[in-house]
Design a protein around this nucleic acid. Structure first.
Lengths: 343, 343
DNA sequence: CTGTGTCGTTCTCGGTTTGTA
DNA sequence: TTACAAACCGAGAACGACACA
């Protein structure tokens, strides 16, 4: 593809560049990669030219091992196809790009054991940091995870948990409970008095916090949570849970709170498919403010989370040596047509 | 966290394990990582125990350089927050997990120059393969990218393009043109005669193919594409393009074809926000079958793409030594309520 | 004494960095 | 002051050494 000889089976090494330029290994290293020592301009040019001619790119594995640190950050999400995690990943990737870091991604599929195994695998990469974005179970055996985390940290790797805090890690928090409380308050003020909640499995921090906040806020406003249905946090789980609720009968004017937007959106579809009308008939609210919430009908009432910004913050927490825990970002309630004021 | 001495600043190495177990480096290497050579059971156990005690994990950078190949695959997408790419990434990640590979991800942001730069950066990782999922521009300078691709391939790295084929790479194709033609045919059969297309920028392969297929299929069915509006491929671009079309005036019964589902969904929202009714008034169709298409109202007519499966296929193409190009997956038209039969 | 089977020594990978000329 | 030689990072693999049958 270039005018040089076609090389097969081996990438050009620093050795090749040095030989081509007629300088020593050390000199070539200094001009091509950072160094505090200086190099004469004439040499610099010759090396640069040779590198270009050969299409040289430093082997980052070799750099990592020689330098003792790898320009890498790992991101663990539950499911990258979920828009919640997609937007977070986008923020992480952006910030990583700015910091000149490569990000490796893995999916826990909401399995605690998988999460531990993945941290262990990723640890082999000696990453600068690991961002744990998949929300965690409070109940499940946290010891194995803690051990892996400690192992990463003892080597200088930083662990960042996004959302649910994990002891001994840097955490980028947002106020699930306060946000849900505020949401519930606003909805009670709109006249809602009965609510059912489509929650995640018991023990899941994010879900528990939101449920607690919502329940309290709604009670404070004079309403009551009459039912809590638990399932996984996904569109389909929301759809199914809602379908069952509907076949059991649900009074008009009831408010349905989906523990996250994807759940709420599944619920809206279930309501419609059951021949009822989302909105005035059965109101629905979510949490996260994923983009889709604007495009469903009626527009989904939710709590805005700056997902990309949170992802970016998480990455910075993973790499910034003198990072200090920021104030938890406070959340904003977005009232849309899925929860019209009750007459 | 364990009962051993707390080590700071250095991960346990194979050396440490070997010393701890009282065996040689080679022996430790043999039991902890793959090897065809055998090792006595007594030794095996001692090494295993020592490794566990120390919390040893092989430094994959060191492995990569020693073995000459890194258990890594790179994935390039335009924007990981886009559900289209999110689902593909999910498929890639799943398949990579099965193959015991780590996947690094990067976003091109639809910038050809960035794409070249990223391939170059990722090349430093000496990945087993690179999956190029971001659709490419036919016009733009393809030479720089070709050079980088050739560089990867000359070292044994495999390049896989998903969707738009790139010469000299393994390609996982799907039939954009045929799919769009089939879609247009079905819609014409429903009675639509006038259509406008919200397309991507000129030169973007995926967009061009779908546009061509749709135009032809619609003409074959007796219809006519009266207008093509170009913009980027995103929800917001679809929304804006549609808004402009609407303010210029659009006759009821016109069909709007969004070059992808996200565009079409943006268009639906624009139609509704303009006070018109998506469906019977202005019909909308998309392409991709992202999950959101089921949840918008009316349900979005589209062409089904097995996105996760395509991602998985792409990964297999990147790692399977004896891979043969599969038949391009044929696509299925999904008629939903956004395109009701015309009376 | 020779063959078989394990283990250890040593060189290697591609860079970085120190001491030194 | 600047460039070079050599040691080093963590792991893999060829090859030699040794024990045992």
């Amino acid at each position: 593809m270039t005018d040089t000889t076609v090389r097969t089976g081996a990438a050009p090494t620093l050795h090749d560049v040095a030989r081509e330029a007629g300088v020593s290994l050390a000199t070539a290293s200094r001009v091509l990669n950072g160094s505090n020592r200086k190099v004469a301009e004439a040499y610099r040019e010759r090396v640069q030219a040779a590198a270009d001619r050969l299409g040289y790119t430093a082997n980052i594995s070799a750099q990592a091992i020689a330098r003792g640190t790898s320009a890498t950050v790992a991101l663990l999400v539950a499911d990258i196809a979920d828009p919640y995690f997609g937007q977070i990943a986008s923020g992480v990737a952006h910030a990583a790009d700015e910091a000149g870091l490569i990000v490796t991604i893995a999916m826990t599929e909401r399995d605690p054991a998988r999460e531990v195994a993945l941290v262990r695998t990723l640890r082999g990469q000696r990453p600068r940091g690991i961002v744990l974005a998949a929300s965690r179970d409070t109940a499940s055996d946290t010891d194995a995870l803690s051990a892996e985390i400690a192992a990463v940290q003892s080597v200088g790797g930083r662990i960042v948990t996004l959302g649910a805090a994990l002891p001994g890690t840097r955490v980028v928090a947002y106020e699930n409970e306060a946000g849900a409380r505020a949401l519930a308050g606003r909805l009670a003020a709109l006249g809602y008095r009965e609510a059912v909640v489509l929650a995640g499995p018991e023990g899941l921090r994010t879900s528990d916090d939101r449920l607690a906040g919502f329940t309290q806020g709604f009670a404070d406003g004079g309403g009551e949570v009459t039912q809590v249905v638990r399932g996984s946090i996904s569109r389909d789980a929301g759809y199914e849970a809602m379908s069952e609720l509907l076949s059991a009968g649900l009074a008009p004017g009831t408010l349905v709170f989906g523990i996250s937007d994807v759940v709420a959106i599944g619920a809206i579809s279930a309501i419609r498919d059951a021949g009822r009308e989302p909105g005035a008939d059965l109101a629905v609210a979510g949490f996260d403010d994923i983009v889709t919430g604007r495009d469903v009908t009626p527009g989904l009432t939710t709590v805005h989370l700056p997902l990309e910004e949170l992802g970016a913050q998480a990455l910075r927490a993973a790499v910034d040596p003198d990072w200090t825990p920021p104030e938890p970002v406070s959340l904003e309630v977005l009232l849309r047509d899925s929860t019209p004021p009750r007459a």
